[in-house]
Amino acid sequence: MSPYELRPSGCTPFEEELIDAMNNFAHSTNAPAFDTAGMVHRTRRRRTTLIAGFAAALIVAGGGTALASMTGASQTPAKPAATTVDHNRATFLLGGLTKEPIAVDLTGMDLATAKGQFLKAQLKLGTIVKVTSPGCKPTSVVEVIPHSPKIVSKGDTVNVKLCAG
């Protein structure tokens, strides 16, 4: 019988040796161990961290936009009122947006502009009263109640006093 003739098993000696070598290799190596629970936990933690990072970035970007619009950075500044008007009485502190409350000064603004600021801050406009105050521009904001150092939050009502002239 020649070395390349078929054996009773139906394989050549080379094929039999190859099959034996593959079987030995397959049975001798350990199967890899996968920590599927750990992989799932890491994936979820990474996903959560990524989502939290994006949410924080959006909040910071949105908060920055809200701060810029609340302070009137995009608007032309109103002419300052005369020195007899107390800025602290026409300023309210808006809380709940950032760690520290944001001071919003309405001194010298007309009623329409003040209403716009209240809408942006999601505050309710309460009573509007005209008072006489020396050295103020007629129909401009002289005082808001509550004013600083009290803090107002979203949904609170703010009363306004306007200059009668």
Rank of each mutant, 00 (worst) to 15 (best):
Thr157Gln: 08
Val141Glu: 02
His41Gly: 05
Pro77Tyr: 04
Phe54His: 08
Val152Asp: 05
Arg7Ser: 05
Arg46Ala: 15
Asn24Val: 06
Leu111Arg: 11
Ala56Glu: 14
Gly135Arg: 04
Leu50Thr: 14
Gln75Asp: 12
His41Asn: 13
Pro149Trp: 06
Arg89Tyr: 00
Ala114Phe: 02
Gly38Asp: 14
Val141Ser: 06
Ala73Phe: 11
Ala90Cys: 04
Leu111Gln: 14
Phe54Cys: 03
Thr107Lys: 04
Thr65Tyr: 13
Leu162Ile: 10
Thr49Asn: 11
Leu93Glu: 09
Ser133Ala: 14
Met1Phe: 08
Gly53Cys: 06
Thr113Asp: 10
Pro146Met: 08
Met1Glu: 09
Leu67Phe: 12
Asp110Val: 10
Ser74His: 12
Gly96Val: 12
Asn24Arg: 14
Thr29Ile: 14
Gly126Ser: 01
Ala31Lys: 13
Leu93Phe: 02
Glu143Pro: 00
Val152Ile: 07
Lys137Val: 13
Lys137Tyr: 02
Thr43Ala: 15
Ala52Thr: 15
Ala73Leu: 12
Lys124Glu: 12
Thr157Asn: 04
Val131Met: 10
Ala61Cys: 05
Arg7Asp: 05
Leu119Gly: 10
Ala31Thr: 13
Thr65Glu: 07
Ile51Ala: 15
Gly108Asp: 05
Lys124Arg: 15
Gly38Cys: 06
Gly126Trp: 00
Tyr4Met: 01
Ser74Trp: 13
Leu162Gly: 02
Gln122Gly: 00
Leu106Tyr: 03
Glu5Ser: 13
Thr107Cys: 05
Lys115Cys: 06
Thr132Cys: 00
Met109Asn: 08
Ala81His: 00
Met1Val: 11
Ser140Tyr: 04
Gly116Gln: 07
Pro101Ala: 12
Lys161Arg: 15
Ser2Arg: 09
Thr36Glu: 09
Leu67Val: 12
Asp110Trp: 08
Asn24Pro: 00
Thr139Leu: 09
Ser148Cys: 01
His147Met: 05
Thr157Met: 02
Tyr4Asn: 10
Ser2Met: 03
Ala57Val: 11
Thr48Tyr: 06
Asp20Lys: 10
Leu119Arg: 15
Arg7Trp: 01
Arg89Trp: 00
Cys136Phe: 08
Val142Cys: 01
Ile128Ser: 02
Asn159Ala: 14
Arg44Trp: 10
Leu123Ile: 07
Phe25Arg: 14
Ala26Asp: 11
Ala55His: 03
Gln117Asn: 03
Asn30Pro: 01
His41Gln: 15
Phe54Ser: 05
Lys120Phe: 05
Arg45Phe: 10
Lys150Glu: 12
Val142Asp: 01
Met39Asn: 03
Leu94Gly: 05
Ile145Glu: 08
Leu119Asn: 15
Ala82Cys: 08
Thr139Arg: 06
Thr49Ile: 07
Val158Tyr: 06
Ser28Ile: 00
Asp20His: 04
Leu106Arg: 02
Lys79Met: 12
Ile51Ser: 10
Val104Trp: 09
